[in-house]
């Protein structure tokens, strides 16, 4: 996927004012990872949702206000956890680098 745009997943058709968005991209050595799974865990660590990354390594969640954890699983890589803060009306952009 050479030339894929980093970050900045298109927000066309998304009502940003009413959603607490968390989105981003999974990278390995700077290259997009299109076969990763990103899970969203709530503030107690409980699973809330999971999505496969797109061919360009992108993912998106419609969360609620507050603190969340992104856990990324990919073939031949250890899981990576990242904390993220979400708020209605904003987009939290996260880049996840896996080993």
């Amino acid at each position: 996927m050479c030339g894929a745009t980093e970050g900045g997943l298109s927000l066309d058709g998304v009502n940003v004012a009413k959603e607490a968005l968390i989105q981003g991209q999974v990278l390995r050595d700077g290259e997009p990872v299109g076969n990763a799974y990103v899970r969203l865990l709530d503030k107690t660590g409980e699973f809330t949702a999971e999505v496969p990354t797109s061919a360009s390594g992108h993912f998106r969640f419609f969360a609620g206000e507050g603190q969340w954890t992104l856990r990324t699983l990919a073939p031949k890589a250890d899981p990576v956890d990242k904390q993220v803060q979400a708020a209605v009306g904003s987009v939290a952009e996260v880049v996840v680098a896996i080993g």
Binding site: N15, T48, A49, V51, R60, F61, F62, A63, G64
Partner: peptide
């Protein structure tokens, strides 16, 4: 459903729009 949906803090799983 996830705890936040059960409690009424979310209306859908978090990979779907909440409206």
């Amino acid at each position: 459903r996830s705890p936040d949906e059960y409690a009424g803090r979310l209306l859908a799983p978090a990979h779907l729009p909440q409206e």
